[in-house]
Simulated scan of single mutants.
Amino acid sequence: MSATDPKPGDTLPDLAGARMSRARLALFAGASHDHTDIHIDIDRAREAGHDDVIAQGMLVMAEMARLVTGWAPRERLLGLRCRFLGIVHVGETLNYSGKVETVDDRVIHVTLSGVTADGRQVVSGAATVARA
């Protein structure tokens, strides 16, 4: 399915995100300046009730954005919303999917979802993309 002539009900090509490793979370913390302890310090994560460090929400959202920009050029992405529904743990890989909901003369509205390998939905969202 092409982003140049989408129809409601069309699906975007799925995207398998990268495995959430401690190293990846630490690198993202450095790049984003999000040094919140539960993302990089296992002791603090355990104090907060987690078994291990957890992924940054913005990292999850960035992967979801990659789903859209892999389908349509980045400059056509007009808006992106997400709702965090669950925690992403070290070792998990998310699979992202999208579906065209509406198309008009100017924009395409897409719904988005991110689920773990065991089918647990951890993020949902929507994107608005300019027509080509």
Rank of each mutant, 00 (worst) to 15 (best):
G79R: 05
R66P: 03
H50P: 05
T102N: 10
A62W: 10
L59V: 00
H39D: 04
K7S: 13
S124I: 07
S21F: 08
H109I: 09
T11Q: 06
Q56W: 06
R120T: 12
G9Q: 08
D37T: 07
V90A: 13
A16H: 02
A45V: 03
S32E: 03
I54P: 00
G91M: 00
A55Q: 03
S97P: 08
H35V: 14
A117R: 14
D52Q: 06
V90Q: 01
I38R: 09
H89I: 01
H89C: 07
A16P: 07
G119M: 04
G9N: 09
H39W: 11
A16R: 10
G98Q: 07
A29Y: 03
M64Y: 07
A26I: 15
G125V: 06
V103R: 02
S124E: 02
R46V: 00
D105A: 13
D105R: 02
D37P: 13
E47Y: 02
R22N: 14
V103D: 08
L77E: 13
H50F: 15
T69C: 08
R76C: 11
G30A: 10
R66C: 13
R66Y: 07
E92P: 03
A55D: 02
A29C: 02
E75S: 15
L94R: 10
G57R: 01
A117S: 11
L78H: 11
E101L: 04
P73T: 10
N95A: 12
N95E: 14
R46N: 01
R81K: 14
R120W: 03
V100K: 00
V103W: 08
K99L: 12
V60Q: 15
D41V: 14
H35K: 11
F84R: 00
R46W: 04
A26S: 10
R106P: 01
V68A: 07
L77Q: 10
L80F: 12
S21I: 08
S124N: 00
V123P: 03
T93W: 04
V123Q: 03
A31Y: 05
E92K: 06
L59G: 08
V53Y: 09
W71L: 01
Q56D: 07
H35T: 14
V88H: 04
P73Q: 09
G30W: 05
H50K: 07
D14A: 15
G70K: 05
Q121I: 07
P8M: 06
L77Y: 14
